[in-house]
Amino acid sequence: MSIIETRDLVRDFKKTRAVDRMTFSVEPGEAVGYIGANGAGKSTTIKMLTGILKPTSGHVRTCGLDPMRQRVEVARRVGVVFGQRSQLWWDLPLRDSFAILGAIHRMDEAATRARTDLLVEQLEMGPQLGTAVRSLSLGQRMRAEIAAALLHSPELLILDEPTIGLDVLSKQRLREFLVAERREQGTTLLLTTHDMGDIERLCDRVLVVDHGRLAFDGTLTGLAGTVGAQRILVIDLAQPTPDLHDVPGATLVDSESDGLRQRLSFDAEATTVAAVLAHVSSRHEVRDLTIEEPDIEDVVRRIYAASGRT
C-alpha cells in the first residue's frame, strides 16, 4: 500500500489554483524530493497531506487514511517539520518539549526517555537539553525540531524547508543524520527544499511542481536527462592524445593542452562513467578524472521554460 496517494488533487484559494489535478504516490521507504519555485504549490500539498488544509476536490490518502477526517490518526503516524514554524515550547528547557510530545503521542515515560536519549545522541544535542528553546541557535533549534518530529517513530517524515537559513556545517550534519536515520528505521521521507544539495544527498526520486501541476516525476538523473542536461567526464591523460571522438555514447566537448585534458559529455541514461572510462583507458593511460554533474537549479529552470514559464 502506498504511504502517500493523491489523485486529481485540487486546491483553490480565492482567485488562484494553488494545486492543480496533482496525481502521484509514494511507496514506503522512498525518499522523495518535492521541488519547485515559491508559490508553486509545495506547502499547500503538504498541508493537504497532513489534514491542515481541506482539498477543493480530488482524492488524498496518507498512510491509507483520509487526513481531513482522520487527522489525529494521521498525526500519530506522520512527523512534520515546517522549517519556519516551531513545534517546541519556547519558554521551557528543550528536555520538557520532548517529555510533553512523548505524552501527547501516548508514549510511556521510559520509551520517551529512551527515544529522546537516542535522538539527542545522534544529533549531538546533549549540552542543549537544559536550555530554554528560545535561547537555542537556529541550527540547534532545527535539529531539535527534527528530533521532535521523529520522537514517536513516524512511518513518514515530512520536512518543509528543513535547511533554510542553516550554515554549511549545520546542513551537512542534518543531512548525515537523516541518511543514517532512514537507513536504520526505513522511514519514508518527503522533503521540500530550495537547496539542491539536500535533494542530491537525501533523495532518490524527485517531483517537480510548477503552477500547482506536476511537471516531472522520476529520478534525479532522469530529471537531468529529460531536459537534455548531460553529465561531463573530465579525463586527464598521461600523454598528449588526439581528440577522443570515437567513445560510444559520449561526445567530445573540448580538449586542452594538446589533448592532456579532454572533456566528454554523456547521457547518463545511455551509458555509464565506468563504460566510458573503460573504453578510454583501454587505449590511453588515464591519470585523473572528475565528473561534473548538471546543475539542478538550471535543470528545473529549463523544465519551467519548457512548460512556457519565464
Partner: peptide, 12 residues
Amino acid sequence: TGDIAVDFLRPV
C-alpha cells in the same frame, strides 16, 4: 501567523 497549523499536526 499560521502557527495554528502546528497545533493541528498533533494527535490532540
